[in-house]
Design a binder for these strands. Structure first.
Lengths: 266, 266
DNA sequence: CGCGTTCTTGACTCCTATCAAGGAACGTGG
DNA sequence: CCACGTTCCTTGATAGGAGTCAAGAACGCG
C-alpha cells in the first residue's frame, strides 16, 4: 500500500510528464528557456505520485530527500509537539511547493498528509546538490545549479514571509481578524491555483482550521455563523461563497468601522 | 550622522579584520579550509561598522544588499504594520546573522536597530550572486558559490525553524510558558555568544519583550515578579539571575506539576 | 534635586476556551 | 429505502486568562 508510485505517460510512451504538466509554470525544475535539458530531467527523474486521502507524503523525522510540488489535490502539514498534540502548520494547494523545511537538519520537521486524493512530484535533493550528473560541462552545470539554488532560496523566502504573516496574525490579531485573514488567504491561493476565488470548497474540516489558527473549533464555527449573519459569506458545511469580499478585507485590515460592525453583531 | 562607517584595522595596516574576528567561526564567509581566498575577501569586502544605541542598521523597505553578522552588541528587528504599530520580530546576539529576509522581494522587510553600542559586518549580496569576480576559474567559482549558497540556505533554514518555534509559542502556549521559553532562549543564546548563561543583563526593555512575545508590558512585569516569588529567578530592572533553571525548563515543557505550582502561586 | 522614563502593582473588563448538549450529514448494512 | 452509528458541525452557558486603565514607585540623567 505504501508503494503507490505511478509514472504517468510511461506506458504509452508519450512526451515526458513535465511537458504536459498543468503546473509546469510554477515548477522550479521546469525551465521554459532551456527545454532540452528539461526533457532530460523530465524523463530521468520527475515522476508524479498519486496519493489518497489520509495518506502521508512523508512523516516528521523522515530523511530529507527533496522538495515536493502539488500537481492536484490539497495537503496539510503538521507536526506533533512534545505533549503529543497536533499543530497544523500549513495547507498546500495545486502548484505550490512544500517540504523545504528540514533541509538543514537533514530530516523533515513536519508530516504532510493528503486532504483528498491528489498527485505530487518529488524534486530529488540530488538536483540541488549535484546537478553535474545531468551535464558534465562545468559552465552549464554551474548555471543549472544556480538556477535551482535560486529556486530553493525563493521557496524558503516565501515560507519565511508566510510564517511572518502567521506570527503577526497569531500575536496581534483577535479571532475575528485572524479568521478573516485566513479566508482571504484561502481565496487568493485558490484563485492562483485556477479555481474561483469567490466560490470555493474548503478542503479541510473545522478542526484543522481551528488548529491552524490556534483557536477552538467552536470559535471557528461561531465565526462562520457570525460572518454569515452579517452577509459577508454563505457557508454550508464546507461549501463557501464569499459575498462581500470588501467587508472581509476591511476586517483583515482592522478598519475601525468594520470592527465596530463586528462587535455590534456579536 | 548616518555615515558612521569605520573600517577597523585599515589605518595601521594590520591583517584583515576577518582573520582576527572573534566571531569568524560563525561567519559564512570565513572558511577555515581555504584561508587564502578568505584573505582576499577580508581585504576587499568585509569591513566592520560601528553602530550606536538607537541607530538603525537598515530600515524596512531599504534595498536588500547583503546579510549582516553581529560582531558585538545587541540588536532588534521589527517592522511597522499597516496600523502603524511596531512588531518586534527578533533579537540578534553577537555571532548571529540577520537580514536574510527580503532577499526575494529585493528589500528588507524589517528594520534593525542597535539596543546598545555595537559593531556589525555586512556580507554584500554580490558575494552570493557573482563570486566569479573573486576568481575567474569556473571550478573554483562554482565551489565558492555553492558554499555561500549553502550558507545562505542554512541561515534561512534556521530562520524558519526559529519562526516555527515562535508560532508554536504564540499559538499554543499561555503567557507563563511563553515567557519561560523566552528566558530559556535568551540564556542559551547568551551562552552561545560567550556570556554566562545564568547571570545576564537583558539588553532590551519590558516593552520590547512584551511586544516580541505579543503580551502586554504589564503582564511581562507581573511574570518577572511571579517567577521571582517562586525562587526561579532574581530580577532587578534588567539584571537577571536564573536560580532554578530546571524549574524554568519544566515550565517550558509544560510539565503538569510545574504548571500547578504556577497556578497556585498566582 | 527635579524631571522623564521605565517598571510595578491593583482593579476591572472582555475575549476566547472549555464544558456540555443537541443537530445535521454521511456511510454502512440490513 | 430506512435505521443506525459515527463523524462533523452548531449552539449555549460558564469560567479564566490576559488586556486595559490608572496610579504609584524606582531609577537614571541633566
Amino acid at each position: 500500500m505504501t508503494n503507490n508510485i505511478v509514472i504517468l505517460g510511461r506506458d504509452n510512451n508519450r512526451q515526458p510528464a513535465c511537458q504536459s504538466c498543468m503546473r509546469r509554470t510554477h515548477c522550479p525544475v521546469y525551465d521554459q528557456q532551456a527545454s532540452n535539458s528539461i526533457d532530460q530531467l523530465g524523463k530521468t527523474h520527475i515522476a508524479p505520485r498519486n496519493i489518497r486521502q489520509g495518506q502521508h507524503v512523508f512523516n516528521a523525522g523522515d530523511e530529507f530527500d527533496g522538495i515536493y510540488m502539488v500537481r492536484s489535490g490539497f495537503f496539510k502539514s503538521y507536526f506533533v509537539d512534545a505533549d503529543g498534540e497536533i499543530q497544523v502548520t500549513g495547507f498546500h494547494f495545486p502548484g505550490e511547493l512544500f517540504g523545504i523545511d528540514g533541509i538543514e537538519t537533514g530530516q523533515y520537521n513536519n508530516a504532510v498528509e493528503a486532504l483528498d486524493t491528489g498527485s505530487i512530484c518529488k524534486i530529488p535533493f540530488s538536483f540541488f546538490t549535484d546537478p553535474q550528473q545531468e551535464s558534465q560541462d562545468c559552465r552549464q552545470s554551474n548555471a543549472q545549479k544556480t538556477r535551482l539554488m535560486a529556486a530553493m532560496v525563493r521557496v524558503m523566502s516565501k515560507a519565511i514571509a508566510r510564517d511572518r504573516n502567521l506570527i503577526f496574525a497569531l500575536g496581534k490579531m483577535n479571532a475575528k481578524r485572524r479568521f478573516a485573514a485566513f479566508l482571504v488567504d484561502m481565496t487568493e491561493r485558490m484563485a492562483q491555483s485556477g479555481y474561483s476565488a469567490n466560490e470555493i470548497r474548503l478542503c479541510m474540516g473545522r478542526i484543522d482550521i481551528a488548529n491552524y489558527l490556534c483557536l477552538a473549533m467552536e470559535t471557528v464555527s461561531r465565526l462562520f455563523t457570525l460572518f454569515q449573519s452579517m452577509g459577508i459569506l454563505e457557508i454550508k458545511r464546507r461549501d463557501l461563497v464569499i459575498t462581500d469580499m470588501k467587508a472581509l478585507q476591511a476586517i483583515v485590515d482592522g478598519e475601525p468601522e468594520a470592527m465596530m460592525l463586528l462587535d455590534k453583531a456579536s
